[in-house]
Simulated scan of single mutants.
Amino acid sequence: MLYLTMKRLFIILLSFSSFSAVAQRLSPADRAALDKLQDSLRAISYDVINGKEQSVREERNDYFIPQLVNALKTSYSYYYPFDSLKTVAKIYPQDSTFRIFTWPLENDNSTFRHFGVIQMNTKDGALKLFPLFDNSDFSKNMDTITNNRGWIGCLYYAMIQKRYFNAEYYTLFGWDANSQTSQKKVIEMLTFKNGEPVFGGPFFSFAEDTVPKPARNRFFIEYKREAVAAMNYDAEMDMIIFDHLISETNEPLKKYTYIPDLDYEGFKWQAGRWVHVEKVFHDALQLGKYPIGQPADKKRTDYVKPKMDFEIQEEEAAKAAEAAKKGKKKKKD
């Protein structure tokens, strides 16, 4: 039996301060009702992730979806954080106009389907919801522009918002465990046209590359299942930064052999597009920008409390300092 193997992720939940400011919109009765519904959803979602058989995971997932929708029908449920649903990723844009829930369902062959919803923040508290239907298994071309019914499924772990010519652009960061041999990370743009979500678009430009290439509608990296590859937004540099990958066996057509090589690429926001930067650091790696030295230990993987790369680095540094401290104490004794 195969169990869900999750790599170290990071989930950035933005705009939590907005909840405290408007939480009063939830009546005490509705909040109490949502507390009970969340308890039930938490138990169901645990089985979706940890059920020992695919049939059990699917059955619980089929039950989880309508129960989640039922909870979201509560007036002003947008302001209820559902923070006990640890197996469901929740991300918010800076303007807090919507939020996205996503979660995975593992098949017995270690491939995944993804599920999700977009909940809009409505003025009257009524539910406006866009279900996300994973079309990955039926789409050979991933470089597409889709709606919520043709969604390229993944687990969203972060979102950043950019504005250009009075239009809002939401960049989504996603992760897909993919298969037994490789995993993927993706960045794509979410926009709204006539109030409807649109995923993808020619927002990823390679015009400034040494050898220019056509723009892409979304950008993927695929790499070895046991490797750790970063794809994050650096606010200080105002750039998307990700690991440059190479084949460890010199077989570039086999993505499952790709690993980070201690170099970085990126995207910078220019005139409403993300423009590719072939090499971010030319002289030396900046402090805090170095990759994780060792692949993630599967036994230590914690999906319930995902961590950012720098948090892992800080933990390792703290452990090293503690070990050194104990060593000194032993010498004194």
Rank of each mutant, 00 (worst) to 15 (best):
A21K: 15
S27R: 13
L245H: 03
Y303A: 15
E316G: 08
P295D: 11
T146N: 12
F64H: 01
K193A: 10
D137A: 14
K255Q: 14
F130T: 00
T210E: 14
R99G: 04
N194M: 10
E314Y: 06
K328W: 11
L4P: 00
Y80H: 09
M308Q: 12
S17R: 04
S96A: 14
R113T: 11
E311V: 02
T301W: 08
D283N: 09
R225V: 08
F192W: 07
Y80A: 08
K330F: 08
L34G: 04
N147W: 02
Q24A: 13
A177W: 00
F165G: 02
K268Y: 09
F112W: 02
R216G: 04
N141K: 15
F281S: 04
M159P: 00
E53M: 10
R149N: 12
A71W: 01
P295R: 09
Y76A: 11
G272P: 00
A318D: 10
I49H: 09
L127F: 03
L34Y: 06
A167D: 12
D238Y: 12
D263G: 06
Q313N: 01
Y169K: 06
D83R: 10
A323S: 07
D238V: 12
A71K: 00
D62Y: 11
A126L: 11
F64N: 01
S55F: 12
H244C: 05
F199E: 01
G327S: 12
K86C: 09
D333H: 08
I160E: 04
F112E: 02
K319F: 08
D143V: 05
W151G: 00
T74P: 06
F10L: 09
I12E: 03
I292T: 03
E322W: 07
P104L: 10
D134H: 05
F206D: 05
N50A: 10
A227Q: 05
A320T: 11
K86F: 11
N148R: 07
F98K: 01
D302F: 06
Q270A: 12
I65M: 15
I240T: 04
A323G: 04
L72N: 03
L34N: 04
D30N: 15
M159R: 00
L190D: 01
Q286F: 03
L9G: 02
E168R: 03
S27L: 13
F10V: 09
I91Y: 01
L287S: 14
D333P: 07
Y264L: 09
I241W: 01
W274Q: 06
F173Y: 12
R25S: 11
A318N: 10
K162H: 09
Y76R: 08
W274V: 03
L127Q: 02
G150H: 03
